[in-house]
Design a protein around this nucleic acid. Structure first.
Lengths: 242, 242
DNA sequence: TATGATTTGTTATAGCCCGTAAGTTAAGTC
DNA sequence: GACTTAACTTACGGGCTATAACAAATCATA
């Protein structure tokens, strides 16, 4: 039979190897781009011979999934850390810190961010099956949305009436609210999501060089969006600290 | 010496082969995803033997570039065709038609659109060198921006004062205006670009499944953005025709 | 502590890919 | 008809994914 507990340090060593593989792969990503992240290259870099890596990740795909999960988690905790720089009494300030931390991380890790965003060409088949990556992605999204929700719940401000939304959006937001056990009204959710889409969309386009034709520095544009975000959500905008 | 004119039909046959290669590659993209687009697979599909394809495209990369250029051109002309469904007397209607045609094409060709958007992980080195793809991309962008410019020039409406923009944006828009020989004031350009970013960003996120966690159908959200676009640019919004 | 199971690694291999080289055939030119 | 060029072929070198078969080390315990 299978032994219940293989001694603890053996597990730890395994974890360490798993991590070394991922971090080696990450280095390769940064140095040689997505196509450089190959199981053989990772093995070579680590002084292992190719197939050894398959003891740790069943396939190239599994490795990629794991790496992207790492990225989401790292981005999430970076944002949370930045948020907690400021006490909860200043939700607006915290929100700004969070958003700026997101952009800063993306700018500091363009390869990683591009990969996270652009790799999911999954055809909806894979979309609903619950994966660690999905969970990590959802946690990431909730960082922003939860915070906006907190702001609103603490001091509600006017949002467009539910009946002013298109019926389809009404339905979708009702569903989303139910699915996430949200205590928020659907009309607020849609407003939050709109803000998210604008901000995150801008960032993705920036990182993927979709705006290079017009802009060389999108920081002020991002700040403009943050300003708009603040006014829309009844928060006081504050320019970034030096 | 090189013959001046190798008989015309020989050239035509070459063009035909070039096109067949690209369209075979496109089929493979749709059927097996980006990784399925391989020179060997294309050759196999065409009954050629591998290296023959290299007579037509020097490298896998060159083939990909050519395909993406095709996509941009197709999207562009689809948008223009939709626009010209309506006479120039109704610039607002034409703009709406253009935008909806863009989304429709993207939804109809998700593989193509994803590839166009997500493939350019080029590291700025390749960014400024003028390629056919770049040109095609710029033509695509200009479809939207030119039209907005036309609307504005025909009947200018208030836009935020230049001095209300951040100095950095002032500078960047001045540069952009000069670079494109635009006759438009920089503050208008920034407004146009903001509208573009919002609309195109939404579409990209939709196609790349970044919003699946909340929405199942983004058409009404897109329409909401179009509505906002219209009010912002002094146009009358009209819901999509059945 | 010695034995048998598990884990971790190794080489060998099949199959696909990119891209180059060298050789062959067919078409186009003078 | 001889010469040139274009299009295509097979042969290869070097990578990559992934599996199989095998060797060594590390348990877990009788």
């Amino acid at each position: 039979m299978a032994q219940q507990t293989s001694s603890s340090w053996v597990k730890r060593r395994r974890q360490a190897t798993l991590l070394e593989i991922r971090s080696t792969a990450r280095q390769l990503l940064r140095k040689h781009g997505p196509t450089g992240v190959t199981i053989n290259a990772v093995a070579r870099e680590m002084g292992m011979s190719g197939p050894a890596v398959y003891r740790y990740y069943v396939s190239h795909d599994a490795l990629v999934e794991a790496i992207i999960t790492d990225f989401y988690q790292e981005l999430t905790s970076t944002m949370l850390a930045a948020r907690d720089t400021c006490p909860p009494e200043h939700p607006g300030r915290r929100l700004l810190l969070t958003c700026r931390a997101m952009r800063a991380w993306a700018l500091d890790h363009p390869s990683e961010f591009s990969w996270m965003f652009a790799s999911p060409v999954m055809s909806a088949a894979k979309a609903d099956e619950e994966s660690p990556r999905q969970r990590a992605g959802q946690q990431f999204e909730s960082v922003f949305l939860d915070q906006l929700a907190a702001v609103w719940q603490q001091a509600p401000y006017p949002v467009p009436a539910f009946t002013d939304l298109s019926p389809s959006i009404q339905q979708q937001m009702t569903d989303y609210s139910a699915r996430t056990n949200s205590s928020l009204p659907p009309e607020a959710l849609h407003l939050f999501l709109s803000s998210w889409i604008k901000l995150y969309g801008l960032l993705c386009m920036e990182i993927l060089h979709q705006l290079d034709f017009a802009y060389t520095d999108l920081e002020p544009v991002f700040e403009e969006d943050l300003y708009e975000l603040c006014t829309m959500h009844n928060l006081t905008y504050e320019p970034p600290a030096e």
